[in-house]
Amino acid sequence: MKPNWRRWIFGAIIGVNMLIGLTAYLMRDNLFRELIQPAVPFQVDEPPPLPDYSDAAAWALRPQESSPDQGKADVFIVHPTTAWSGSTGWNMDIADNVARTRLETIALPNHAEPFAGAGPLWVPRYRQAVLFALLSQRDDSREALNLAYEDVERAFEAFRAARDPKRPFVLVGLGQGGLHVMRLLQQKGDLGPMLAATYLIDQPVPESLYEGPQAVPGFPRPCQTAQQTRCLISFTSLDGGDRRGEHILTQRSTIWTQARGYHAIEGAPIACINPLTGSQAQTHAGPGTNRGSAAASGLERGTEPALLPGETGAICRNGLLWVEVNRPAALSRARFELGTFYKITGYNLFYAALANDVETRLANLK
């Protein structure tokens, strides 16, 4: 009888561990949020030092004053979230080593460099809200996003003051950076004919900002062709069949509107421009149209990544950009890591497409 009891006990232990593992998997979003949640309320949190945008140290990338103008435009890029843990507060110091390393080794080579062919890149460091602020609708989260936006607005004004107003410029916002650029466009109004193109990537943009009774004057409308200028290129990509991700993006994504400030998107219709076609058309662009994805993490500035052509196609459907899931591991999210859905990717599925898109639009600017 004793061996039977041992088998029962051993089986029970295995069953309990499997149950714990299954529960942790099903509750992984809640578990991840708990792990990265700031420990103190925003009101008692000590904000990091204010960046000085007259100082080169406040910029991740900025052209040298002594260097001649290159390219056809100036490119102002607001980077995505690279501060995941809230252990040090609601907003991250621009000097934080972990967030800076992610920015310089992952975000810049994968997501900023595709725009380098257009001209000098201006990428401000800002007191970004930590990732938890984008995953909740708490007052603390809104305050953290407000503080981050104030830095972005000051950096943009420094950018405008330093550049030739007769020269075209491009706006790019990625992830949290897309949220801040979306707000910037609403608060600054029409930025004039020199704004050649606006890219809001992996940040849902409600259609109500550019059409209908609540449309914001001057907010760029979606591009209808790959040659059109002074228009919006916006997409939020998602692996095909990811219904959980679809719900998160279409219901819980944070947006900013003049009427309500920061709030959840709650199913509002979303803009989607396919980067493989440069248009709103909801037709499938097959892998053959993709000139090259890239896994550029860790590459030094100026190093061209090895492009991987034809690895995925894409289609705009219900406001989201759906992509094929059968891709090399280097172009896929980590499978067994908490919060990978919310973190910046160490690759860019549309690296070559974006590089070509911005250069084509600038070539057609009149």
Rank of each mutant, 00 (worst) to 15 (best):
1 M>V: 11
9 I>Q: 08
10 F>H: 02
13 I>H: 07
22 L>F: 12
24 A>W: 05
25 Y>N: 06
31 L>A: 13
33 R>H: 05
39 A>P: 01
42 F>D: 07
47 P>N: 03
60 A>N: 01
62 R>M: 07
63 P>I: 11
69 D>V: 13
69 D>W: 12
77 I>S: 02
79 H>C: 06
81 T>A: 08
81 T>Q: 05
85 S>M: 05
108 L>Y: 08
109 P>I: 01
109 P>T: 03
116 A>N: 13
117 G>A: 13
125 R>V: 00
125 R>S: 08
127 R>S: 00
131 L>T: 01
132 F>C: 00
142 R>G: 09
149 Y>R: 02
160 R>T: 07
167 R>S: 12
173 G>M: 01
184 L>R: 08
197 A>V: 06
201 I>L: 12
204 P>V: 08
213 P>F: 12
214 Q>H: 14
223 C>W: 13
230 R>I: 05
235 F>R: 07
237 S>Q: 15
238 L>R: 04
239 D>K: 06
243 R>E: 15
245 G>H: 10
247 H>N: 11
252 R>N: 14
259 A>H: 10
260 R>M: 09
262 Y>C: 04
265 I>Y: 08
281 A>I: 12
285 A>E: 02
286 G>R: 11
288 G>H: 10
297 S>Q: 09
312 T>A: 10
314 A>L: 07
315 I>D: 09
331 L>H: 06
335 R>N: 13
351 Y>E: 00
351 Y>D: 00
356 N>I: 08
360 T>S: 14
